[in-house]
């Protein structure tokens, strides 16, 4: 089977290996690195990670599926994860979610047909003092409100 992960991925793993007493401990870092590279974790990717670490692919999926940050399905170019936990919901996060749904024409959990945007509700991001907060790919956007969301979306090319 042709490899899906790059030389860079393997180089990064090689560097991390001496940091841990077991090879299995590389699993979370490997899943992160693979996702950074490919956007999501396909069965092929997980199988390749499994054979690199020396574990059954089922063990890879068992772990990957436990954590919400690992995308086991493809996501859009921009992955919006809006926190709706206590502090954010007290500060109006659900209004922002609703607004974003309308604006993007998709519901929470969906991806726009042009594969540009995926929208998710997120659990507490640890940014409650600047609530509501969201993650846009790997970055935080804080003190969110409808206006700020519009600005963010405008920058990403959403009109109106």
């Amino acid at each position: 089977m042709a490899k899906v992960l790059s030389e860079k991925f393997y180089a990064e793993m090689k560097k991390l290996e001496p940091r841990y007493p077991t090879k299995v401990a590389l699993l979370l870092p490997a899943l992160h690195a693979a996702q950074d590279e490919l956007g999501w974790l396909s069965s092929e990717t997980m199988e390749e990670i499994g054979s690199y670490i020396g574990i059954h692919p089922a063990q890879v999926k068992e772990v990957a599926s436990f954590y919400t940050m690992y995308n086991l399905k493809p996501v859009g170019k921009y992955h919006l994860k809006i926190c709706t936990n206590v502090a954010c919901c007290l500060r109006g996060a659900y209004d922002v979610v609703e607004h974003t749904e309308k604006k993007l024409g998709i519901k929470v959990g969906q991806t726009t047909p042009d594969k540009q945007f995926t929208l998710h509700e997120e659990e507490c991001l640890g940014a409650c003092g600047t609530a509501p907060a969201m993650m846009l790919n790997n970055d935080y956007v804080e003190n969110l409100d409808i206006r700020k969301m519009d600005e963010v979306l405008a920058k990403l090319g959403v009109k109106g």
Partner: peptide, 17 residues
């Protein structure tokens, strides 16, 4: 390690992949 738990919590499924 072929039989595993995927997902978590109330959605946990015991399965092969």
């Amino acid at each position: 390690h072929e039989m595993v738990a995927v997902q978590r919590g109330n959605n946990t499924e015991i399965t092969t992949i």
